[in-house]
């Protein structure tokens, strides 16, 4: 019974997210549920309906898109400011970050790029946004090539351990943590940007 109820809820959700011009298909899928006797099969079918809705370029209200875009842009800008802070530009960071000194140039460059990425996303300049992300990725990849010894998970863990103990970390550990974090953040921003790109393109006439 719970599975049947969940299937019906999912079918309604599929109807909500399906683009208006294809909503008949979502209604068709919802109608099929009444002809599927097995609750488990109905649930599986309804999950497929939701998946279909999202694959068709889910209809997302424009205010949700704006809110999401500004949220991610704010996050990118916050990362930029965080890097400025860590590099000692704003105020003295925790002791573990004393190790930032050899890499402050890299941190400031990345910070500027994050701010630019946030601004370009907020302004819907998605090409610039992706160009900045590509530039950041190239910068980090270049750093890995120039100094590959720093790229070790163990070193990053040592940095976080030092941070928790409020002790100084080695530059080596800071470098590893910085690279690891930035690759993750850039990948996250790229995924978010790809989502906005897809929905923004659907809203562009022609």
């Amino acid at each position: 019974m719970i599975r049947r109820s969940l299937a019906e809820r999912l079918a309604r959700h599929a109807l909500d997210v399906m683009p208006p011009e294809r909503r008949t298909w979502a209604r068709g899928m919802a109608a099929e549920l009444d002809h599927i006797e097995d609750d488990g099969a109905a649930l599986g079918f309804a999950l497929g309906a939701v998946w279909t809705g999202y694959r068709q370029g889910a209809h997302v209200p424009s205010n949700w898109l704006r809110l999401g875009r500004w949220g991610v842009a704010g996050g990118a800008a916050a990362l930029g400011l965080l890097l400025f802070y860590l590099s000692g530009w704003l105020r003295r960071p925790p002791e573990a970050y004393d190790a930032v000194a050899p890499f402050s140039g890299l941190a400031v460059l990345l910070g500027c790029a994050y701010l630019g990425a946030g601004w370009s996303l907020a302004k819907r300049r998605l090409r610039l946004f992706f160009t900045l992300l590509a530039g950041m990725f190239a910068l980090l990849a270049g750093a890995v090539v120039v100094f590959p010894r720093g790229v070790e998970i163990g070193s990053a863990q040592a940095f976080y351990a030092a941070l928790l103990r409020q002790e100084p970390a080695t530059p080596h550990a800071f470098y590893a943590a910085l690279l690891l974090e930035e690759f993750v953040f850039i990948a996250g921003l790229a995924c978010a940007g790809a989502v906005f790109w897809r929905f923004e393109r659907r809203r562009t006439p022609g």
């Binding site: 298909w25 068709g28 899928m29 099929e32 002809h35 599927i36 599986g44 079918f45 999950l47 497929g48 309906a49 939701v50 998946w51 279909t52 694959r55 068709q56």
Partner: peptide, 18 residues
């Protein structure tokens, strides 16, 4: 019908309907 097609083709609804 969609469900019958899904069973006959062995395709999940999320694959069949698109």
């Amino acid at each position: 019908y969609g469900y019958d097609l899904s069973k006959e083709t062995g395709l999940a609804s999320g694959t069949l309907y698109p």
